[in-house]
Amino acid sequence: MKKEKDYIQDIAEIRSMMERSSKFLSLSGWAGIMAGIYALAGALAAYKIYDFNPGTIGNSINSENSSYPDLYFIVLLALIILILALGTAVYVSYRAANKREEKLWNTTSKRLLMNMTIPLIAGGILILILISKGMIAYVPPISLLFYGLALYSGGNFTYQEVRVMGLVQICLGLISSYFVEYGLIFWALGFGVIHIIYGIYMQYKYEK
């Protein structure tokens, strides 16, 4: 016959197993903080070095000489930021998983990734189409919007805070699609500031 303490332990075990087997929890706030810093640095570089403002380009899509000489550099810069952010996220998660004695590539991480990948690929293709049509002004809002959708759908399979961040990004994306001339600022706000706030909050809440 078990004692009362054992039953309480049973319930704790049930809870922990349900959470561990349905959610990917090897995330770290550092991934968010670093991604935010890369994004801010990238946005600043685009603005300072190339004097890049997607809003003004979008306004001149009809004129033939609107081709932007530095567009390739901007795309390259964006890709570098993306790779750095993803690389950091994978590395930080790998360390977090090791600490929890879990594998990085398991059922929950696969599910999280699958649910994020579909909105991200749809958004990515749309962005490529927009660039090819010269509608650069809509790239920042669309990237925020689809990134937010990806976070929202992936948030079911990890910490709830990710869903909240998704909603915030969706709102920012929608607002910035109205105020396209401030695209770069909204982009820096969403991918930079929001990531950093999220990262600090997660670090503060889950790591003592």
Binding site: D10, E13, S21
Partner: peptide
Amino acid sequence: RIRLGIMSALAVNDML
């Protein structure tokens, strides 16, 4: 507790 664990994991996943 192991059997309880198996059931808990299967309760929140369609299949494992």
